[in-house]
């Protein structure tokens, strides 16, 4: 049985306005478990409480009620933070330092020796391609360069757990590719990764499990293969050279008919309806360009669960 890397019990957080008035709760009894060696995707729309949860785990914000722990240590205990590498959304560093100096600074905060800091720099500069910019000031760095440095800082102390807040946000395709590869590598290295993201396609590729936060509560959690039904939602039939009266006849059993690049697309709710339509098209000497079953994606699931969760609360 693997160790529990992250555990929260009935976590509540309510911020106060500048006038000291209580705002609606950001977290409202969040209970969550992430096991060691897991890559866990933390999903939820803007304002759902993802960043607040991450900040509580990293000791930046304190909960009003409930418990949060990292490998059994309370989030108030600095031993918990010695096991965590944190990458905030849009990481900011001292502009006048170079990547090498930045990493050295964080190494000192971790309590690493000079030899350990140098060794770590050699490894991370190679891994994250920082050697060419090692002695350039952070001022003027692009978003992608900052993100690479952010990863290096998060990984500075060779932590058992990485907590990443929107690690792919604002990156170009190359940057996202780099982050995705890095996360897959971390998974191979048996690191525990907890990250929030809006880019669901990437989440689908790298996550073992996901948790979905709706209105400050964990609405669903589990392995992706268990959560996604993978049932066929619809079957799209793209046709060409089909007489208009045939299209009109088929459209009575189709969910939707629209013009696609390759021809006319007819969406059916079942394989049987789609097969029947294809036979009719062939019989009328029309052409079927493609027949594609469409399964539920994480994005479909996300939207469905958000609607369910908001409807329930």
């Amino acid at each position: 049985m693997s160790e529990i890397a992250i555990e929260t019990k009935s976590l509540c957080k309510r911020y106060r306005s500048h006038l000291g008035m209580g705002l609606p709760p950001t977290l409202d009894g969040l209970s969550l478990r992430v096991h060691e060696h897991e890559v866990f995707g933390f999903l939820g729309k803007n304002g759902a409480g993802k960043t607040t949860t991450i900040k509580i785990l990293c000791g930046l914000v304190w909960q009003n009620q409930g418990e949060a722990s990292i490998f059994g240590y309370s989030n108030r205990d600095k031993r918990a933070r010695s096991l965590v590498g944190y990458l905030p959304e849009n990481p900011y560093f001292y502009e006048y330092l170079t990547p090498r100096e930045t990493l050295d600074f964080y190494g000192k905060l971790n309590g690493d020796t000079v030899a350990a800091r140098n060794k770590r720099w050699d490894y991370l500069s190679e891994l994250l391609d920082l050697s060419d910019i090692a002695n350039q000031r952070v001022r003027g760095f692009s978003k992608g360069m900052r993100q690479r440095l952010g990863f290096a800082v998060a990984m500075a102390g060779d932590p058992r757990l990485l907590i990443l807040d929107e690690p792919m946000s604002g990156l170009d395709p190359m940057g996202r590719h780099m982050v995705r590869d890095l996360m897959l590598r971390l998974r191979e290295e048996k690191k525990t990764v907890f990250f929030s993201s809006h880019i669901l396609g990437d989440v689908e590729q790298v996550c073992d499990r996901v948790g979905m936060l709706v209105n400050g509560k964990l609405h669903r959690e589990g392995a992706l293969q268990d959560l996604l039904t993978r049932e066929t939602l619809r079957v799209d039939v793209v046709t060409r050279d089909v007489p208009e009266d045939t299209i009109a006849e088929l459209s009575t059993s189709a969910q939707r008919v629209y013009d696609a690049d390759e021809g006319v697309c007819l969406s059916f709710s079942s394989h049987d309806d789609a097969d029947a339509a294809a036979r009719k098209i062939y019989a009328g000497s029309g052409r079927v360009v493609s027949l594609t079953p469409i399964a539920e994606t994480l994005e479909d699931y996300f939207v469905r669960q958000q609607e369910d969760g908001e409807g329930a609360s």
């Binding site: 990293c58 930046l60 933070r81 905030p88 900011y92 001292y94 905060l109 971790n110």
Partner: peptide, 14 residues
């Protein structure tokens, strides 16, 4: 304000 504190306070420091 500049959020440089995030990566510092999240280290094992009091």
């Amino acid at each position: 304000d500049k959020r440089t504190i995030y990566t510092i306070i999240s280290r094992p420091i009091d």
